[in-house]
Amino acid sequence: MPTDPRSLPQSALADLADVPATGRWVRSGSARLHVLDYGGPGVPLVMLPGITSPAVTMDFVARELTDRVRPLVVDVRGRGLSDGGGRYTLEEYAEDTEAVVEGLGLERPLLFGHSMGARIAAATAVRGKVPLGGTVLADPPMSGPGRGPYPTTLDTFLGQLRQAQHGTDADEVAASWPRWPRREQELRARWLASCAEEAVVATHRGFEAEDFFDRWPAVPGPVALLYGADSPVVTAAGAAEARRLLPSAAFAVVPDAGHMIFWDNPAAGLAALRDALRPMAG
């Protein structure tokens, strides 16, 4: 599989100067993983972003949680400043998450993941290799064998990635994501090229080859699932199946939001996340 070079413009690295977090590094096998640590005395919350979302793109979510938890946002393998390489399977991503927990000495952290990150959080929780205090999943891909394709095609992802590799800007991003806050459009324009093509290809393949519902019923509590009212990823049927298979989970629907919950409706998305974390964070 060909691998396009990953790159970051100087303006992207300058974004980190405006982020109220400390960059930390851990090893998972031969890979170095980068984590944005927002500090504070709260319960650690390991945050796992989506398929083409480096850690810095979740800054606007993390900084709104520091009064309740200690957010630590991971540059998932093959994104942002973390190394690429490997298989990019859920098991490998879960191993990376365990390495973050162990490498930073986090005691019974909470896990929170959006989209791809939600699948990783579920896989990590089910593996049970590190003690956790709870898990929150936001709009996990429910596609899989016999369930139809993931709503966003691989060609769409690759088209956006190549656009970024050639140089894009916030206006071009806005054509695809018109509802996003301007700062988030700018961050995506600058940071998308840090995502490895092989990581995107393998992860998208996993969305359709690995069934979320194989793990979901075994996710230990406490667990919460958030989803956008207009999401094509977590449909009404998917949400109903999730409720049936794990009735002990807490569920919250974010109004006026699609799959990109926090970008589409930041206030409602953050309120739902804070509500989900409240009983877990103590």
Rank of each mutant, 00 (worst) to 15 (best):
128 G>C: 09
179 R>Y: 10
192 L>K: 09
147 R>A: 09
176 S>H: 12
197 E>H: 01
96 D>E: 13
181 P>W: 04
207 F>M: 13
228 G>V: 10
227 Y>H: 15
66 T>P: 09
196 A>S: 11
178 P>N: 03
235 T>L: 08
205 R>K: 11
134 G>K: 04
77 R>W: 11
190 R>D: 04
160 Q>P: 00
125 A>R: 07
281 A>D: 14
48 L>Q: 13
95 E>V: 15
84 G>P: 10
47 M>A: 13
139 D>H: 07
249 A>N: 08
132 L>C: 11
208 E>S: 09
100 V>K: 14
177 W>Y: 15
273 L>M: 12
191 W>P: 02
180 W>M: 07
172 E>C: 06
81 L>M: 15
167 G>N: 10
3 T>S: 10
118 A>Q: 11
102 E>W: 01
16 L>E: 10
11 S>Y: 00
220 P>E: 07
172 E>I: 13
21 A>L: 08
109 P>Q: 12
236 A>E: 15
1 M>W: 09
23 G>F: 04
281 A>E: 12
72 L>E: 11
186 E>Y: 03
161 L>P: 06
59 D>R: 07
191 W>T: 12
232 P>W: 01
239 A>P: 06
13 L>V: 09
131 P>A: 12
218 A>N: 07
199 A>F: 02
275 D>C: 04
268 A>M: 00
43 V>N: 06
247 P>Y: 06
115 S>A: 11
66 T>Q: 13
203 T>H: 01
194 S>V: 06
280 M>I: 07
162 R>H: 15
203 T>N: 03
36 L>K: 02
152 T>C: 00
108 R>Q: 14
65 L>W: 08
72 L>F: 07
113 G>F: 12
19 V>G: 10
146 G>R: 03
90 L>T: 00
33 L>P: 06
166 H>F: 01
107 E>C: 07
30 S>Q: 14
152 T>F: 00
55 A>H: 06
138 A>H: 01
120 I>Q: 13
75 D>R: 13
47 M>V: 14
49 P>A: 06
168 T>A: 02
208 E>F: 11
195 C>V: 13
52 T>I: 08
89 T>W: 08
37 D>A: 09
90 L>H: 03
159 G>N: 05
252 A>R: 15
167 G>D: 10
85 G>F: 05
202 A>S: 07
180 W>T: 10
261 I>K: 02
73 V>E: 05
178 P>R: 05
161 L>D: 03
153 T>F: 13
251 F>T: 04
277 L>R: 07
273 L>H: 09
46 V>L: 15
7 S>T: 15
218 A>I: 00
113 G>M: 11
119 R>I: 01
269 G>S: 11
243 R>C: 00
23 G>M: 13
196 A>Q: 11
40 G>L: 06
147 R>D: 08
164 A>H: 05
218 A>K: 11
95 E>N: 14
183 R>P: 01
61 V>R: 01
17 A>M: 03
205 R>N: 03
88 Y>W: 04
234 V>E: 05
109 P>V: 13
46 V>G: 15
67 D>I: 04
280 M>R: 11
5 P>A: 13
21 A>C: 02
51 I>Y: 02
30 S>F: 01
162 R>S: 14
133 G>H: 06
210 E>Y: 09
57 T>F: 01
229 A>S: 14
238 G>I: 03
174 A>F: 00
78 G>M: 00
7 S>C: 02
258 G>Q: 12
117 G>V: 14
20 P>E: 14
133 G>R: 15
262 F>D: 04
28 S>E: 01
